[in-house]
Design a protein around this nucleic acid. Structure first.
Length: 530
RNA sequence: GGGGGUGUAGCUCAGGGGUAGAGCUCCUGCCUUUUAAGCAGGCUGUCGAAGGUUCAAAUCCUUCCACCCUCACCA
């Protein structure tokens, strides 16, 4: 078919004059040729709108009645399969709700219409009008009396049976993944549903949804490396937020008593199955409450979200069944270590704790204070064992610079984290509101920064100023939305709950599709075809 | 960053020093209730990239790139 008389130009890759010789080009060209041919025949393959009477689920719900009444209906969707038998054809059309078979017969659409239907490729988006009937094999079907092409697809669809399996392509071209893998679509609908349920819960509990800066002059509220950027007019460094905590607390100072934010946060750290550089957190702050109150509310929220999605409190996650029926287990960090190892770290000095940790086989570079040592022991010995929802409470003072000192326990803070299936699902404090204490914590963090802890938090002068105006006693909570969704949709990798996960740049080995298209169009205009 | 694995047609995958393979897609023909429609015929490849070994490399070696799993650190 293709004339190979002219040798491909073996110039450098990326050279625009290089002749692309791959099958994909022929597939695209075949489709493109249909467009030019039909366009010159006066048919617009990219029209502006189509008047639908129903989406497919609506047709299926009222199928018998509408079939009996021979109601004329109009639907639109993508052609997923085609079965041609001479002068009649079947096709499967999928819209945003469901799939339906259509039946296109020469007698019903005329020669011109049937010829047009012949040009349709898998992936094209069409609109059709007709009546409903059931085939003799029992399949509910639309008998088409007229149709039009609403969008011509130039790129072929993945395999109609096997679908799109390659994980890398699924992430890089999520649109293709969504077209051919309906279960992926379902998972992302679940994501939206989960977030909506949380939003409803917070609204119903009189929490005010607010928005605070993503571009921050100073980062804080978490332990992480930030993304840095530069504002030209202001000529100053700005950071993408790693958390919104310090801004929400300023609102507590300002008199809002229950606030929350759905926040996109950014952390300049590794990418793996649990981490994406941008991710979603929900943070909420509740005046006149403490961390115990927050734990009770968090339980109720999760309970409601789980039930809303699954209709039960016990859900599968990999090899486990997770039971979300409150109350969740509550245990202090130090007690949990003692339960697991028999070693009691309470009251230990830095030196004693280091020695005890060493005996347990826990050592490391970053263990620069007592709190870090205890945390490291806990992470090694306890965290992996936490399958059922468990609150770990009362973290060491040194690793909790924004939490209030524990009202009874020396060296600890009023802080909990929730763990489910070994994943951290939330972090909450009785929020530190004594400006002097907070100032001292910041100064201590400054020392940690100097000591090589590059995740220690910088001093935020305006935040201290705000606390000097007075923040009421407050409980605060932040939790990772993506991880919660992972648990609730039984996904092992954060990329499966992010529509467009961060990927490295593709550098070699593939021809840009747009370049193929540009070359085809170029050949059309120069008449250099066939 | 360490260890293990993968990369072959648009998609799903075989092959494994000597002519590049299959199914689906696509193209042509037949077929007016099929359904992964069927039947007959046909087109299609920088075998991830760059080097090396060899008479000969998709295959063996080295380096690099991307992706997956895993370990260490962070949500």
């Amino acid at each position: 078919m293709t004339d190979k008389a002219s040798q491909p130009d073996h110039s450098k890759p990326g050279d625009a004059t290089e002749q692309i010789q791959i099958p994909l080009k022929e597939l695209i060209k075949t489709r493109r040729d249909k467009v030019t041919k039909l366009t010159s025949a006066g048919i617009n393959l990219y029209p502006y709108r189509y008047e639908r009477t129903h989406v497919i689920t609506e047709l299926l719900e009222n199928f018998d009645t509408m079939a009996n009444d021979e109601t004329v209906v109009r639907l639109a969707g993508r052609v997923m399969l085609r079965r041609k038998m001479g002068k009649a054809s079947f096709a499967d059309v999928r819209d945003g709700s469901e799939r339906l078979q259509i039946y296109v017969k020469l007698n019903n659409v005329g020669q011109e219409g049937y010829d047009l239907f012949d040009t349709i490729d898998l992936g094209d988006i069409i609109g059709c009008e007709g009546t409903l009937f059931v085939t003799r094999t029992g399949e509910r079907t639309l008998k088409v009396t007229s149709f039009e092409i609403l969008t011509k697809a130039l790129h072929p669809l993945p395999d109609k049976h096997a679908g799109l399996v390659d994980i890398e392509t699924r992430y890089r071209r999520r649109y293709a993944d969504l077209i051919v893998n309906p279960e992926v679509r379902e998972d992302f609908i679940k994501r939206t549903k989960i977030i909506r349920t949380i939003r409803d819960f917070l609204n119903n509990n009189d929490f005010l949804e607010v928005e605070t800066p993503i571009l921050q002059p100073l980062y804080g509220g978490g332990m992480a490396l930030p993304f840095k950027t530069h504002h030209h007019r202001l000529d100053r460094e700005l950071y993408l937020r790693i958390a919104d905590e310090l801004y929400l607390k300023r609102l507590l100072v300002g008199g809002f008593e229950k606030v929350w934010e759905f926040c996109k946060d950014f952390r300049n750290e590794g990418i793996d199955r649990l981490h994406n550089p941008e991710f979603s957190m929900i943070e909420l702050y509740w005046a006149y409450a403490d961390y115990r109150d927050m734990a009770a509310m968090f339980e109720q929220m999760l309970r409601q979200v789980v039930f809303e999605l699954h209709g039960t409190y016990r859900i599968p996650y990999h090899d486990h069944e997770i039971d979300f029926e409150p109350p969740f287990k509550w245990i202090s960090m130090i007690d949990s270590i003692r339960e697991e190892t028999g070693v009691d770290f309470s009251g230990m000095s830095f030196e004693q704790a280091t020695a005890a940790a060493k005996k347990l086989g826990v050592t490391g570079d970053g263990l620069i204070n007592r709190g870090k040592v205890i945390e490291a022991v806990w992470e090694a010995k306890v965290e992996p064992t936490l399958i059922q929802p468990t609150f770990i409470a009362d973290f060491p003072f040194e690793i909790s610079p924004l939490a209030k000192k524990h009202r009874e326990k020396e060296g600890l803070t009023e802080r909990f984290e929730l763990f489910i299936a070994g994943l951290e699902m939330g972090n909450a404090f009785s929020e530190l509101n004594d400006p002097v204490d907070q100032l001292q914590r910041f100064l201590q963090q400054g020392k940690a920064l100097e000591a090589g802890d590059d995740e220690a938090q910088p001093l935020d002068d305006d935040f201290i100023t705000a606390l000097m105006y007075g923040m009421p006693p407050t409980a605060g909570l932040g939790f990772g939305v993506d991880r919660l969704i992972m648990i609730l949709t039984n996904k092992h990798n954060i990329r499966d709950v992010l529509l467009f996960p961060q990927m490295k740049e593709m550098k070699e080995g593939s021809v840009p599709v747009s370049k193929i298209l540009a070359q085809i169009v170029d050949e059309e205009s120069t008449g250099d075809t066939e």
